[in-house]
Design a protein around this nucleic acid. Sequence first.
DNA 1: TAAAAAAATGTGTACGTACACACAAATTTA
DNA 2: TAAATTTGTGTGTACGTACACATTTTTTTA
Lengths: 343, 343
Amino acid sequence: MKKKITIKDIAKVANVSIGTVDRVIHNRGKVSEKALQKVNDALKELDYKANPLARSLKNNVVYAISILVPDPQKDSYWLPCQQGIMEIITEYEAFDVDISVHYFDPSESESFSQVGARLIRKSPDAVLFVPLFERESDVLLRKLNKKGILSATFNSMPRNHVDQHVGQDLYLSGRVGAKLISDFLDPSTSKIGIVHIDEAFNNAIHMQQKEEGFKSFYETYAAKYDIFTKTINTDNIHSTLLDFIESHGVNVFFVTTSKTYEVARTLELLNKNGIVVGYDLLQENIKYLTEGKIQFLIHQAPRMQASLSLKSLVEKLLFKKEYPKKQFLPIEIINSENVKSYL
Amino acid sequence: MKKKITIKDIAKVANVSIGTVDRVIHNRGKVSEKALQKVNDALKELDYKANPLARSLKNNVVYAISILVPDPQKDSYWLPCQQGIMEIITEYEAFDVDISVHYFDPSESESFSQVGARLIRKSPDAVLFVPLFERESDVLLRKLNKKGILSATFNSMPRNHVDQHVGQDLYLSGRVGAKLISDFLDPSTSKIGIVHIDEAFNNAIHMQQKEEGFKSFYETYAAKYDIFTKTINTDNIHSTLLDFIESHGVNVFFVTTSKTYEVARTLELLNKNGIVVGYDLLQENIKYLTEGKIQFLIHQAPRMQASLSLKSLVEKLLFKKEYPKKQFLPIEIINSENVKSYL
DNA sequence: TAAAAAAATGTGTACGTACACACAAATTTA
DNA sequence: TAAATTTGTGTGTACGTACACATTTTTTTA
């Protein structure tokens, strides 16, 4: 049975006191050449690893983390993200972290700025947020960097420097959508439409990167297809969609947002068959997926994104554990069968 | 900023000593009715949560965990599993766990029994293993249960009682394969073959459950297909496969093991096109997937299975954290595009 | 009612680390 | 060479929990 090496063991081997060992480890000087040498040798020889438990027990500051995410009440896409956060809060309940969650309205950028400014005033140790609005996020991020507050994002990635990010490769996810669709294509009858449905142009970067990825796939693909693109952001989604479908005869759809069900519903109303590939495991999307009216969904794993990013942040503060600056989650393909294993 | 509640706080509020609080928490008696009441009230009122760091720091036993997994040198499918284990070992390096890994030859059941018997003799606190051989696993499991050693499995599930299990729903994964294939089927030309390729009948349960799931899908499916099944376990895989393909005219394949590339290779040699759906992200499978000679792979996430099961075990011992007895990982669908996000 | 026994309660120490402080050794200065 | 300084080194205490042991209080017995 392996015994764990402590500073005491090092002290004994190097024939000095634990105080000296401690000074060497934290290199805060006041150590003679000779002692330094001996301690460093012992450190290496015994392969010393500090006990993170004892370390963080001693370190009795309570870290404050503020989280800024879209209100799940306004857009149910954010519900799993909230769950992921709550899961981590429970997990670290007994530790020295104080995590507070703040919500903004995903349809109003001022809401984001307001809540963001408010929570920054309390000078937390770290801020985790979803940079839904490009400009406002950059403002927030600049403030955070200036104040030396640790910053982290998930879902989308800001242009500015951020200390940690968890997300998906959106360009590649567009390519995945293209590949999935390609298996159904028939050069003589298929007409492809890319549909962006988002209430307030929030996900501009998101949608654009997915579209680029999608199109890039067909550039290297044997048969060429005309690809029609439609951006829908108002309330009369149905009439706009109807018009789009009828005017171009589109029958194959790649929907870049979680509102995929809107296309499936419109096709249902029109009593038309079509191929629909879109995003996210919303209740309504799953319903159409199960009924065979959506062929595939790409899972952006909001729950996992939220929990992984929060966890990374917590462990970085608590245990000085280092995570890669950018963590990309796999792009998960969901059909009517494996969806059951995701619930 | 929230202050964490300690037994000291409880003692102060209940107006007793920390010793009394401690006795209440661990209910080892010797506490008067009155004191018990007061302490319990304080405990509830302040919502006390023990600090797991301090707790496990104090608890200075070193837990021993023995792991019994197939040798990745004999079958490269187990390489990621080994990596997942190593990852967790590194993560908990500084903690009071002593994890030792032992390998058995996946083609020889005696090897499993032998190594299993050897490691059980050291009476570890927990044993994590892959129950590749049904009978031998049950023997091992019975010994573990008798000796009161914590048992855990992953990959396949033994019939006998096991304290913890991480795996995938194999029946459902068969259905997922069926669904993926169904999108390519043409009632007039398609002939479906289920192929089990395994060197030594190890994965009997695995393969059977997948086959059942696969077939169940087509029972409720509109068009009926003849489904041919072939089990290949010898070395002359190619000739057997060749014969199978030619004699039935099979052109759509569901391969239930990681040897999926064998079918793709045979088709390549025959210069035939076919639909191939199989399992696992082996180097060779990925090659054929990228070349379009395998349409989909189902990812069994051996790395994740190994790391999750080991992690659960470690945290159960170290922090008394409770995990669900059975954890099922999602069934992940891989095509030529999203495979990049898995590497 | 005093002594003995039992029950209840409190105190001290350890886990491994971090840091303040006291002390000892080596230098510098007078 | 003694005193003053600088540098190096060791000791003690705290973090929060767990448990052994000492002490106090209550109950039982003679």
